[in-house]
Simulated assay, not measured.
Amino acid sequence: MHWLLDAWIGTQTWLFETFVSPVLFHFNLMEWFDDAFDAVEFFMLGVVQILVIALLMRPLEKRRPMENVKNRRLPAVDRVYTVLSKLGVVPLVVFVIAYPITNEIELQMRGLGIAPPRIESLMPWLHDHPLVTFLIYFALYDFAAYWIHRAQHGFSWWWALHSLHHSQREVTAWTDDRNHVLDSLLVTLVLVIFSQSVGVQPGDYVSILMVGRLIESWSHANVDLGFGRIGDRLLVGPRFHRLHHALGTPAEPRIYDHNYALVFPLWDMLFGTARYDRKARPMGVEDPAIDADNDLGWLGQQVAGFRRFAAAILPRLAG
């Protein structure tokens, strides 16, 4: 495996020295040297994720679909979301806004003498078990993500943004990245602050994020495959998460208020939001105004989502 690691680092270094470093030097931005080098790796990981979706998940969707795609035009905009997200364009925007906020919070915590201990400090034996340490941090991250996801559905102003993700009638592996930029910013802020508070280090956070996002892409795939009776209760798969995107009906209003977990169904089972069945349901939302997202492109969807957000939050500010 050493040759693979060497090739990865070599590619990262070549991309950085060839394309990124000259730009930083030209615009006198060398203080961003380390962050930019890490950003190149983020970009490379994004390319890998896109290839996994395109070369593995999409063929499975065509071979073993859970439901036949009725309108192949609709998933096209989700591919735009995936490219913008996985290749770092949207994360860069979020980072530029979120970094000063989270950095200030970290400085204030240090000024107050608050330095959350890492799990290894509480359990020194973990120093010899990095995989176990990673899984513990990963579980903590997923626990926080579960409650953030419930908040996205529970607060009307947040649902106004998050509903963009649910408006897709043809859910595929590309749909995971279909999010409003403001929604992504809010989620990132909360998760980074939570991660700082429990001692997750930046390197661990990036790894957790990448593994989690790949699993989330798989859970959105239109694939009639599962992990078995026990496995489906250990890891979120397409069958479990597809119910979360189901269209609400009079018989099952807001059926999508179930199966919130991103990676581990344990949280849904513990807090009473898990629902297991293999009933075929159409995807989307029952609100015609939100369903209209399907007639828009990326920019139009961003504008429509922001308008819903403004309409939801302005009455609260006025009151």
Score class of each variant (00 low, 15 high):
107 L>I: 11
106 E>N: 12
129 H>K: 07
127 H>W: 06
110 R>L: 08
110 R>C: 05
125 W>Y: 08
120 E>F: 07
111 G>V: 02
114 I>F: 15
133 T>G: 03
131 L>P: 01
111 G>W: 11
107 L>H: 12
117 P>F: 05
108 Q>I: 13
134 F>A: 02
125 W>N: 06
120 E>G: 09
133 T>R: 04
121 S>H: 11
133 T>W: 03
109 M>C: 13
134 F>Y: 10
106 E>A: 15
129 H>T: 04
124 P>F: 00
108 Q>C: 03
114 I>M: 07
124 P>E: 00
130 P>Q: 10
122 L>W: 07
111 G>D: 13
123 M>A: 13
108 Q>F: 12
107 L>Y: 09
109 M>F: 13
133 T>Y: 03
120 E>T: 15
107 L>C: 05
131 L>Q: 00
111 G>C: 06
123 M>T: 07
109 M>Y: 13
109 M>P: 12
130 P>I: 02
117 P>E: 02
120 E>Y: 06
129 H>A: 13
126 L>G: 03
115 A>N: 13
109 M>V: 02
132 V>Q: 08
115 A>F: 13
122 L>Q: 09
132 V>T: 14
119 I>R: 00
128 D>K: 08
124 P>T: 00
123 M>I: 15
110 R>Q: 11
126 L>T: 00
121 S>R: 11
109 M>K: 14
124 P>R: 00
121 S>G: 03
128 D>E: 14
